[in-house]
Design a protein around this nucleic acid. Structure first.
Lengths: 220, 220
DNA sequence: TAGATTGTTAATCGATTAACAATC
DNA sequence: TAGATTGTTAATCGATTAACAATC
């Protein structure tokens, strides 16, 4: 309904998803010692449309690019980081310390994207002191709400099996979580103000699988 | 350019991604003992547009729905499974037995989506007999091409770090792989006939993070 | 028959791409 | 100046939604 107070230039959801891709590519260029980059080069390398890249970058870049030379690499990187909020770490809790949950806990790479998992929970855990696993400590579910409230956590990661995902989701919402990253293959019903990002592996497989079926052995 | 030989009704990529969501929901209903389901009910439950659901189902359902009663549940489920290829298991190889790779290996849930990981590889492994891990055995990278060729594997899963993902990708293509499921946060350059499905966690985080930034504490 | 639902054609919406003037 | 690149307005494309006739 009401527009959020945004910059004059708005950006599409699709464009938003491309920003991390640009970010990673630009970081690599920067490591390689480059100092500036032009949109057509990025487009070619990442196999995107040239205008699309220019439009995306124009929407986030603070200083803009310069005709002939392109964009200042460091400025562009920090513009994207600022736009995506990589510079202020968002703290998150994770619920479900199964295989996938443990993998995410142990994964060191989220902080570079501005998210830090501060605690994990699992309903199999009874000891209030928690159980140590690779990457942190897992606590009983009963402690979830209190901890979220006290630490003012806004991101919840769901890695429980499908059949209890909705229940966990409700608990997270009740605990003050505003954004949910859902790895369970179910649709979650949430109040309006909550965002759910589905990491839908089944959907990804569907695309792959369908493609192979439609185009059997194009390799000769 | 040239259209693939498809059914008269074509389906959008977006719709394709919704099919696994329907599938999971319908399976649940079926378990609960229901025998038929109407599109409006599905739409309401999954928070989708009613027409959209009808259109999606019309595109895949073999027998179609019936006015007043809706769709036969079992028929609809098997139609979707057939459409997505869940009924013929696609065999896959996985490269990169780090944290994430091991989690995927140990994860038992892919087969229900028609994908089975038959072998895993990692360049840290030297022993040709492989090294046992939870969920299977990891072999040296040098054995990749030979195995893919002999077993006629068409799906490759990349869970190596970003900086060697392209190299692994090239090896997979060279080994006859047609579809790549990429978990590394980089854009992969591939020949035309190869599909790449990016499991872009960074993009997901970007959406969440951005949302929280734009709408600070709507919960009062 | 009346009412709920299907399937399809037409209208709308959002995102991508093309065209082009402005700039260094 | 000539040429490459930027940023923006207009045209196109694809997907969603609205409208409606057909069916049980």
């Amino acid at each position: 309904m009401q527009k959020t107070k945004e910059k004059s230039v708005s950006i599409s959801k699709q464009a938003l998803k491309r920003l991390p891709v640009y970010h990673h590519y630009l970081k690599k260029l920067s490591c390689d010692g480059m100092v500036s980059i032009a949109a057509p080069k990025i487009a070619k390398e990442l196999q995107l449309n040239e205008v699309q890249v220019r439009k995306d970058l124009a929407a986030v870049s603070h200083s803009g690019g310069r005709p002939r030379t392109g964009f200042d690499l460091l400025e562009l990187i920090s513009s994207i980081e600022h736009y995506l909020g990589y510079d202020n770490i968002n703290e998150a809790v994770l619920v479900g310390a199964g295989k996938l949950g443990k993998a995410l806990l142990a994964y060191q790479g989220f902080e570079q994207y501005g998210v830090k998992i501060v605690a994990a929970f699992d309903h199999g855990i009874k000891n209030p002191a928690g159980v140590k696993v690779d990457g942190g400590t897992v606590f009983p579910l009963s402690m979830l709400e209190d901890l979220c409230r006290r630490l003012n956590i806004h991101i919840g990661i769901i890695t429980v099996p499908a059949d209890c995902a909705q229940e966990i989701c409700d608990m997270l919402v009740k605990s003050g979580i505003l954004a949910i990253w859902n790895f369970a293959p179910v649709h979650l019903n949430v109040p309006n103000q909550i965002v759910v990002q589905n990491e839908n592996m089944a959907a990804s497989l569907a695309l792959l699988s369908k493609h192979l079926k439609d185009q059997p052995s194009t390799n000769k």
